[in-house]
Structures are given as structure tokens and as C-alpha cells.
Design a protein around this nucleic acid. Sequence first.
DNA 1: AGCACGCCGACT
DNA 2: GTCGGCGTGCTC
Length: 804
Amino acid sequence: MNIAGVIVDVPAKQTDKTFDYKIPDKFLDVIKPGTRVIVPFGPRKIQGFVTELKDQSSFAKLRSIIEPLDLTPVLNEELLLLGAWLTEHTLSYKISVYQAMLPAALKAKYEKKLVLSKGTERSELPNDLVDLFLDHREIKWDDAVAKGLVQKLQKEAAAGRVEVVYQVKDRVRKKMLKHISPALETEQLQAARTELPSQASGQQAVIDFFLEHPEPVEQRLLLTTLGISQATVQSLLKKGIVKTEELEVYRDPYSERKFEKRVSLKLTVEQETAIRPILSSIETEQHEVFLLYGVTGSGKTEIYLQSIQEVLRKGKEAIVLVPEISLTPQMVTRFKERFGDLVAVMHSGLSAGEKYDEWRKIQRKEVKVVVGARSAIFAPFENIGIIIIDEEHETSYKQEENPRYHARDVAIQRAKTFACPVVLGSATPSLESFARAQKGRYTLLSLPKRMNNQALPAVEIVDMREELRSGNRSMFSVRLFEKIKDRLEKKEQMVLFLNKRGHSSFVMCRDCGYVMNCPHCDITLTYHRYNEQMKCHYCGYEDKVPTVCPECHSEHIRYFGTGTQKVEEELLKLIPEARIIRMDVDTTGRKGSHERLLNAFQDGQADILLGTQMIAKGLDFPNITLVGVLSADTMLNLPDFRSSEKTFQLLTQVSGRAGRHKLPGEVVIQTYSPEHYSVELAGTQDYDRFYQQEMLMRKGHQYPPFYYLSLVTVSHEELMKAVAVTEKIAQFIHSRLSKDAVVLGPVASPIPRINDRYRYQCLIKYKKEPELSTALKSILEHYQQEMGSGGLQISVDLNPYIMM
DNA sequence: AGCACGCCGACT
DNA sequence: GTCGGCGTGCTC
């Protein structure tokens, strides 16, 4: 077994296979499947993943692996298999999949350099090159290019005075710090202490310290805790009483914070009923998917925590996925309080180094629980006992770049391997999941009541068309404004929510709320400034922008868009004394600012929390008694068949922020389409009826969960080329599928041009098409050459969430 | 993805 | 006659 099959770090169709290399004898015991290695590849050196070991290769002359990058494989057998599965299910390159499974820090960086050859002196070079190597024997290739000296240098290279060197670098180094530890056993240490001169109090203190704690301690820490100087340590070192070593330390993003240990809460009867099947699945080690459907504030988190506790008791590990946006300090705290140091946290707020350290803790089995966003699903645990996905309906679980995976699918796949349960939790489950629960593929667990029977907040829907009619042109309705003033007087807090994702413009009548829809697709038409047209991105339908409302003939018809900053300004104009904290991408950009703003709000430093998406979830402040949604429509009018579902989910989530504790909560939803079922039913928090209604729509228009979707997006600099290729692809797919499948397109993508590239797409709706994957693969194969050089790009998304 | 090899246009 | 354009094909 001295040959390794290696997947090389070159994301291209032609290199998407294993390359065989000889393993040098000295690395035979280190290199295993899952190890990263540096291999020669053509003239360069690149990183690769060993995926298999073998005795024979069909290749006659093999080159050798240069060196391994890991002492322990970064991918274990299960993850390698999972990678193969993912490749198949996302049609991505193997290398992209493996890289997606690991922290970015493990991705190689490459450097191309020019080095003075051995035995060559700087003075032997031509005059204009001498300075380049002034105080090093090497220079960066890019610098040489910038100075326009490449040709000259290449001549030197041909003459053997300069060499081109390729280097593979790790992105992040392990953080090493100097540690001190005793060099002697306890008794000898004791003896050494007595031999010290009596005035050597510092040295005595150090020995006393090590008699208590014999393990290595960071030097800086030792000096400060004992109040001694470096010199003291030096003399002990000379005497051979202590020794130093460089040890890896973790960057701990939570080191500053103290967590009080909390114990389990008593479960309510409902929670008790809901948790039982989960516990039994853990107990009997039977894979099962649970949909934990519980209204906001019904205590889902406590069920997660206690299930995990049971898993840990069995000596197994747990993965908890939380949407990036709600991976709030509050959430992390609850897990840290319960499980202390056994928890690793992974989210985008961490630096690459911090993420890597958290990952290392998992790999080294120093933690048992990981709480993290999407990519935490790849946590390298080897004995998973449960996978929990909170806010299961969130679309951020779907990765929108290659590999285009859905964390839910990966979770189920891994859980099958480990024969453990998956718990999908949500107050507003995705239609897909709820439908599966209805069909019995998932086990439905319900928590219909809030804990301590707190009533759901009263929701009032305000018709903004009425407001306009009665002369109120501001963005606050009379009702909402009254309530804001009332809360300010009572010194209670409130949250104002503005959905910012309404940017893709749509046209709406301010008088009657009429929004232009596509007659064939039930999807909002998008306004295009460049040709003053309304357009459907699903079927290509086009219409003129109306000057008067087709419905009520009003002239107040215009397109929409507004921002948090504008709301803040207007609010301050009306109520100058209001203390507002604004949370959006602008104010939370810097690291830690998210947490700081929320803490400020919690401490009562502001009355109003104004924000976008990010304040919709997970917040749990006792003093919030009013939630205002400024415009419920923005999301409803996105060109997306899930827009109703997203609107309902969002409104329900936001409403759930109010009155979670002693004070009752109120919600005001402002809208131009109060009669739309997603708004209306969010008002009564009636998921079940929403589900029924939305399922009818989906069935009628052949959308998930009745049909699967696949999306092929073609882009090219030339419009005609993009259209023509998409057309051919559509025809080809059509010919390969059964008559039950629907192939739509070519249609311009919702973003028809990015970076001067025209984008066309083809949407496939189908129930069961075993040939589809093969067909898509052969398309990618067929256009391979053109994708390399001709500037053509084709991307395939099996089960897209964003239609762009 | 790089990089080398190789075959056609504008220059010393 | 040469330098250099980027099309084509390969990397174990």
C-alpha cells in the first residue's frame, strides 16, 4: 500500500479524479485516507487530499508525494464517504466538496517565487537584477511581473542561476505559546526546593505552584499569577528544575465571559410528551427524523438541551445548527451554561484562526457539542448521537455556491450513518418538512402552547391604503404611532421591523394595493428601468409599466423601496426624544457590534430597536411589549414562489418577539395587502390554515413539495450565445425526461446580467426522473471545452432556494 | 487552474 | 527571418 490516490486542488472537470502518487517510505505510517498532502502537479506543487491507498496503479511512472500536511487525517472515513455522496448530489467537483467540509484555514495558499540557485552569488546576475536580491535570496514572482523583469529572470533560470519555486502554505498557523512545566518528578521537585537558597522566594513559589499543578502552564500566566520575573524562571531553567516548550493554545472567542452553570429545567407536560420519542430514538439507536413544531416561546430549546444531555450521557456527540442570523450571544450562552467547556461554537463572526481552533477542539474530541451555522454540519465528530436543526425553515441552510448543498439533507445523511435522530425545529416549518411529516416520513412532535401558558400576542393588521386615503403619508400608521408614544411613556421597549429585502423593485398602487402579477405564474412582475417594462422571471411574460392602476385607475402607482436609515430619520423628526438603536448591515458590520448593540438594548439604553432580518429571530427580551412591522409586503412581492411562505414565516417570527414574559405583547403589522392569506393568517398565527392554503397554490402551480426543482443557469458575455445554449440545454433535457416533467425556459435570470455576462436559465419541475442527474452531467461534459476557454458558464442547482 | 507546446501576424 | 499572440491539451 505505498500508492496514494489523491484529489488535487484544481477545481476543473478534467482534474476531477484521483491522481496516483508514490508514498515515500518515511511517510508510510503518516499518510492515510483523508490526509492533506503536497504533491507535484506538472511543474507546480499543489495541495491534495488522499482518498485511497493501493498497491498498484495503471500509471507506469508515478511521482512521489512531497510531504503530508497533517499528522492526523483531516477527513475521516465517514466524511470521505459523505463527500462522495455530496459530489453526486450537488454535481460539484470533489475538491470543492472536501474544501467545503473543512475550515477555510486548511485551504492552501500558493506562492510562486524566484530563488537564487545554490552556489550562485547575487553578483553573477546582470546589473539590473542584482538589486532584486539585495537582502534575500528570493523574490516573489508577482513582484517580478510588476517590475517587468520576468523575461530577464527566465533567461537566468534557463542558465541555471535562478530557479522557479512553487510553495504551498497553510493559511493559519497554530497559535503557539511558550509554556513552562516541571522537569522533575514530585519527590525530586520537593528535594530541589529544599536545596534552594532561602532568599530565592520566587523560585520557591514556582516550585510550590508546580507541586500543586504539575501540568504545563503558559509562561506569561505563570509570571503574572506569582508576581515573579522572567529571571526567576531562567534560573530554574538553568538548574534543570523546569523546562519550556511551545504548546498550541486556542484562540477562545468566549474567554472573556463567565458562564454560570445551569441545570435542566422542569419540562411541561407538552414538552415531556414531545421529548419522549426523541429520547427513545437515542436509546434504541434508530435513525428517525423528527419535526418539532412548536410556537414561539414554547420551549423548543429546552428539549434540545435535554436531548443532548441524554446523548452526552451515552458518551456520544451532538451537532446543533442554528441560522447564522440568530446565532446570537443569547443562544450561545444557553448552551455554554448547560454544557460549559464541552461546547464549540462555529459562526461567521469568528476569525479564520478562531474557526480553525474550534474545529480542532472537535477533531481532538475536546468538545462534545457543536453549535454553529450551516457548515457546522461537517463537524468531524465520530460518534454522533443527535443532530438538531433549529429554525428548520430558514433558507440560509442552503448554500448558494458550489457545492450547493442543503444542511438538512446532509444532516439526514449523516444521521443515517450514525443511526441517530435528527430534530428539525420550527414555529413555522417549511412546507417541504411539514408535508413530509404529514406523509409520515418525519415524525411530527407538536408544542402548541407557550410555556406558562402565556398568550400569543394580539396582532393588529393596519391597512396602509386606508392611511393614505385619510391623508397620512408617513411610514407610520396612526395606530402604530399612538402605540409607540404610549410605550415611550410607560418606559417599555419595542422593536420596529423593516424588511429590507424589498429592493428588487415592484410596482404597486398606493390606493388599492394592487401589485402587478404574472398571469401565468402568480409571481410578482419585476420592474426594469432600462426598458420601462414589467417582467416575469419564470416564464418570460412581459408587460408595460402602467401609468394608472389597472384595478382602480388611481395615478398613485409607483415602485417601492425604503431603508432603515430613512425610518430612523423620520421617527426622530416625529419624536426627537426617542432613543433608537438601529441594527442593519451598516451598524453591525464590525466584529462584536451585534452583541454590543443588543446588550445596550437589554440594559435599557434605548427604547426602540429598529432593524432588518437580523432582529427577527432568537431575541428574548422581557421588556418588549410592542412589535411593529413597517411594511409586510416587501417580501411578498419578490419574484419567488416561496414569497408567501417567507412572508408568513417572517411575520410570525417577528410577532413572537413580543410579550414573551410577564408583560403582554402587542403586534402591529402595516401592509398594503391585508387580505393576502399570508398576512392575514400570520395575524392569527394560524400555521395550519396557512399550510393548507399554500399547499393548494403549490399544487396548482407545480411547485415543491409536490414537484422537485432543478435550475440550470447559463451565462455568457454575448446575449445570443447565452440564449442559444440555454435553448439547446432545455431541448436536450426535455428529450431525456418523461412527459410528466416540465421544462421551462430559456428565461432571463432574475438578475439578467452580472459583470457584463448575460444570464439565462432553465427550470425543471419533476416528480421522479432518475435520468435527470445523468442528463445534467452529460450537459456539463458536453460544454466542457467551451466552459474552459469560451467564457461560457453553466451552473446546476438541484433543488434551488434562490432562483438567481 | 496553470503551464507548455505550437502554429499564424507585426516587427528589428 | 524572430517575437509574441492565445488556442489546445495535459497534469499521476
